[in-house]
């Protein structure tokens, strides 16, 4: 879960830093921080932070998210989505709770409420299982 300032409460998170580009389907079970460029999809069953420098051209799914950067794609957040002043989202949003700071930009449909987002989490878990299976298959080969 996030602390007040949007930082993760615990360490060990995945970081996609500025100066790095990720292309493809990224799945994680832990907290994720995106500061660089991502195209494809981003899915985590934990929390996501999109920093001001981040440019995401992808569909995003997470439990909670704090967004200060740009997202072009649909965003499905199970619990709480927090849009900071510098956030820019071009795409539809589905979330349990939405917090929008003055200055944040949203171009898309917004759907809020618990029922709409439960499927996002189911989807996350399914995709995580799929990527784990791929990884385990490779591990067996060693």
């Amino acid at each position: 879960m996030f602390k007040k300032d949007g930082e993760f409460a615990e360490g060990g998170e995945t970081v996609i830093a500025r100066g790095v580009k990720l292309e493809g389907d990224f799945n994680s079970q832990g907290n994720v921080i995106v500061e660089g460029e991502v195209s494809g999809s981003v899915t985590t069953s934990s929390d996501l932070r999109v920093s001001e420098s981040a440019k995401i051209n992808a569909d995003v799914k997470a439990r909670n998210a704090v967004v200060a950067g740009q997202i072009s794609g649909n965003t499905k957040i199970q619990d709480k989505l927090e849009l900071m002043e510098t956030a820019s989202i071009d795409g539809d949003i589905e979330t349990g709770v939405l917090s929008v700071a003055p200055g944040a930009r949203v171009n898309g449909r917004i759907v809020m409420g618990g029922d709409t987002v439960s499927e996002a989490v189911k989807g996350n878990k399914k995709e995580n299982k799929k990527s784990e299976k791929n990884a385990d298959m490779a591990e067996d080969e060693i």
Binding site: E13, T14, A17, R18, G19, V20, G36, A135, D136, A138
Partner: peptide
């Protein structure tokens, strides 16, 4: 770990855990 540079400046440290 990827220590990326933008020009001559250090940009950031990418950190992931992976199986392969």
């Amino acid at each position: 770990i990827i220590e990326a540079k933008l020009g001559r400046k250090k940009a950031g440290s990418t950190d992931l855990k992976l199986k392969f």
